[in-house]
Amino acid sequence: MSEMEKDEKIERAFERYTGGGDLPQVDLSAAKAALTEARTEERRRAEKRRKVWTLAVSAAACLLFAVALAFLLLPFGAPDLEAPSGSDHPPAGESPSAPEHFSLLSATAESAGYSELESRCGSAVLPFRRFSAAQNASAQYTVYRAGGEDVLLSAELGYWNGMTKLKATVYVDLSAGKYLAEELEDYADLPMSRDGYRYEAEYIGGEYVSRALLTRGETYYVSMISHNADALGLLVKLLTE
């Protein structure tokens, strides 16, 4: 079925309706700075991908060379080795498929309460139970959908630690790796910490901007900004213990 045309008369009426007021007062300098930052980050990632690709191609070329050399040398007196049975190489075509990417910005997002999430997301939501139940904590949840299914849960958490209120965002993958938000893609590049999860903290403008990627049954992407260098570690403990 071809896409249905819009009704011209209604379209014109809406043009004039939504375009009728003044332009909003918007300062674009922050957006322009963000664009430059995003471009720099993009170039950094492209460079990294190029390096990984070059390494992979070099490794493949070496392997091919070794195989070719073995074929050439075997007829000239190589010992008659039987191929071991029960090889542990996966059969062709069984490599894990790459996740399908989507953007948090343009995905359908629905807010939901904790009790609804218990039935909707199963065990993925359990680590947040204490945040929803506690008097001194808050949690707001959003479920992102892609391809007609729930693929990502986001929890905006707020809780008191001593005299400081800590705020964090935790994303939980609900798609078992089938979908990946573009915004979370670079978490996989974070360095592995001694605690067994990927973690990075940067000290920016007097605050620690920390991110972590951990798998505890589900995959969790954690990000927070705090004056406390240990805040993210504390949160991970709360989520996993």
Binding site: T18, A31, L35, T36, R39
Partner: peptide, 24 residues
């Protein structure tokens, strides 16, 4: 153009779509 890194494209986007974004 924005995708290619041209920040001035934001001014044009504001002019073309700003009112509608604001209305929404």
């Amino acid at each position: 153009a924005l995708k290619r890194g041209d920040g001035s494209a934001l001014d044009g986007i504001l002019l073309l779509a700003g009112r509608r974004m604001f209305a929404l």
